[in-house]
Design a protein around this nucleic acid. Structure first.
Length: 586
RNA sequence: GGUCCUGUGGUGCAGUUUGGAGUGCACGCCGCCCUGUCAAGGCGGAGGCCGCGGGUUCAAAUCCCGUCAGGACCGCCA
């Protein structure tokens, strides 16, 4: 037997038990006559006490990260030497026998969580050492709990976990595909899945009724703090179900995951229409952990003399307690607003003067007294606040104020995740330069039943879809929709999008074929597991919750990927490389 | 493709604004001392292509140009 127990659970109650422990040396304190070693395993740290006189000089040689196996009888620490900072701090293990299982070179960077700001390339180059840090261990274990909770919640709700293929046909839709050359069909390529979207719909046609998967997805797009080439998606689809059914199932799964991590089950998820999110928060992923909502001031300025406010939309936000922000700070906000596409940004300091609330600003002289009072009343501004107003085209106005709101707002630290369903998305996000509408979701999204007339009648941008997003603390976690399952309606959408029947057949023929054989009404959802885990772990970057992530340029400092392959492999695949465009680098 | 930020012994930083000797701090590492420490302590020591290349200059970590690597963001992510 290698060990009798893990080190982290030793307590006063274990005094007098004989134990054998195995782990890494997290720290050593060599006093000459006595050597203290902090022995670390996956469960924590315990202090062991080594006496060079009985154990020999080897105890002076032992360094950080050496791997030891020690035996001894647990004893209470002497009076006054208890370490309250350690769960095991009441006890220690005097070493009777010691075995060096492996020596270690000194680690290239501190493995303590107190030194958390090491260059990320160094951490990734030695990820196996980085993973020994308790913070990384916690993140990966938290992630495992989330995965387990999601699986359990879905299985309990009668969902069948089905694996879908990684080597699939490329479809020219959506993100850039990662491709894999085919050896047996030189010149042909597989694509790695961007998501199991089409397969899960086929599973519905196949009568699985309720499918889920925690699926690996790959997209060859630029990386970000919340985006990696490959990521994990909780993916679900259900037959004979509407949007509410799907949202209920997903809410249950996400709630279970949150409860598994925090011990606390979240309340009912909020629900907000896309339109409200735009008008109140200037975003399609509103962070509702703080207010500072966008307020429409259009009524106040309906007949204003002030040119800048003679616009389709005049809206403002009230920034609490920032009324005395420096001129340079305010000027920076104006610049920011202009950069975001606003014609300008009107700012006003809210002050108190002789018992009344007044607005002080360069533009104040252009505004009438009722207008100024209207601003204060409508925004609920109090002395000390800063009022920011943008006027212009409604979409731009909302977007600019939404960004400023996020720049200036402060979510409550340690608050709830604030999960929120966003519903009633528009079916099309814009009309392209070719006059064709651009789908907001994907072309299989079911239009809202009440808006079918609009679809056929005219105002395409007003058509709502049966799509829904899950937003958490300002992060877009995922999205889903009711799918079109009738080929007539699907053809209609394709023709609106300018996709000919031949083209549709060419791109998604296998799905359209399947739909001719009694496809059930179905709906589904998918969200990013990495993002949910990062939120729950309090990390701003999903690399912190991925064991072996890639850098922003898509490389892996540990393995050296991506790397060149040898000529033989290329030949076998029937691939020849073009010479490098700009002078060979390697 | 673009904007911005960063790059200095193994690690984290200061030094760059205003050019003047690789000058400094903390940790780690090596050696010696030390029986109650908690990131032990004391004394001593080693360790540098200032990312790389070019330019300006009597002189470059410092100024200029390019380049590489990393990061945040825009584009992109149906």
């Amino acid at each position: 037997m290698m060990r009798t127990q893990m080190v982290g659970r030793l307590r006063a109650a274990d005094v007098d038990s004989e134990v054998t422990l195995a782990g890494w040396v997290a720290a050593r304190r060599d006093h000459g006559g006595v050597v203290f070693l902090d022995l670390r395993d996956a469960s924590g740290i315990v202090q062991v006490v080594a006496d060079p006189e009985t154990l020999g000089d080897v105890v002076h040689r032992i360094g950080r990260e050496w791997v030891l196996r020690v035996s001894g009888t647990v004893r209470p620490r002497p009076e006054g030497t208890v370490n309250a900072d350690l769960p095991t701090g009441e006890v220690e293990v005097p070493v009777v026998s010691i075995e060096v299982l492996n020596e270690s070179e000194p680690p290239p960077f501190p493995l303590s969580d107190r030194a958390d700001d090491v260059d990320e390339v160094v951490r990734l180059r030695y990820r196996y050492l980085d993973l020994r840090r308790p913070a990384m261990q916690d993140n990966l274990r938290l992630r495992a709990r989330v995965n387990a909770a999601l699986r359990e919640a879905m299985t309990k709700q009668d969902f069948v976990e089905v694996e879908t293929p990684m080597l699939i046909a490329s479809t020219p839709e959506g993100a850039r595909d990662f491709v894999v050359p085919s050896r047996l069909s030189p010149g042909s390529f597989y694509a790695l899945p961007q998501s199991p979207q089409l397969f899960k719909q086929l599973l519905m046609v196949g009568g699985l009724d309720r499918y889920f998967q925690i699926a690996r997805c790959l997209r060859d797009e630029d990386l970000r703090a919340d985006r990696q080439f490959e990521f994990m998606q909780y993916d679900a689809e259900m037959s004979f179900a509407d949007a509410d059914d799907v949202m209920a199932v997903v809410s249950e799964a996400v709630s279970s995951a949150i409860e598994a991590v925090t011990g606390k089950r979240p309340g009912l998820f909020g629900r907000m229409t896309w339109h409200d999110a735009q008008e109140r928060f200037g975003s399609d992923k509103p962070d509702v952990r703080f207010a500072m909502e966008l307020v429409d001031l259009g009524v106040i300025f309906a007949a204003t003399e002030f040119r800048a406010f003679q616009a389709p939309a005049v809206k403002g936000i009230c920034v609490a307690a920032q009324g005395e922000a420096s001129r340079s700070t305010v000027d920076a906000l104006v610049e920011r607003a202009k950069k975001l596409g606003a014609a300008g940004l009107v700012w006003m300091r809210v002050r108190e003067e002789g018992g009344t609330t007044v607005l002080e600003a360069p533009v104040a002289k252009f505004l009438s007294e009722p207008e100024k009072q209207g601003i204060v009343a409508t925004l609920g501004a109090v002395p000390g606040d800063l009022v920011l107003i943008v006027a212009g085209e409604r979409r731009v106005t909302n977007r600019v104020l939404g960004v400023l709101r996020l720049d200036l707002g402060k979510p409550v630290i340690g608050g709830d995740l604030a999960p929120l369903w966003l519903v009633d998305f528009p079916l099309f996000e814009a009309i392209g330069s070719d006059g064709r509408p651009i789908p907001a979701h994907h072309p299989f999204t079911m239009p809202h039943a009440d808006d079918l007339d609009l679809l056929r009648g005219g105002d395409l941008l007003a058509v709502r879809s049966q799509a829904y997003d899950l937003v958490c603390s300002g992060w877009e976690l995922g999205s889903g929709s009711v799918r079109i399952h009738q080929s007539e309606l699907q053809q209609e959408i394709f023709s609106l999008l300018g996709i000919s029947p031949e083209e549709a057949q060419d791109r998604f023929g296998f799905l359209l074929d399947a739909f001719r054989f009694g496809a059930p009404p179905h709906a589904g959802f998918a969200f990013g597991v990495d993002r949910l885990v990062a939120l729950l772990a309090g990390e701003e970057n999903i690399r912190e919750v991925i064991a072996f992530p890639k850098t922003q340029s898509g490389s892996d400092p540990l393995t050296g990927a991506p790397s060149e392959i040898d000529a033989g492999q290329l030949a076998e695949l029937g691939i020849s490389l073009r010479p490098r465009a700009k002078g060979a680098s390697r």
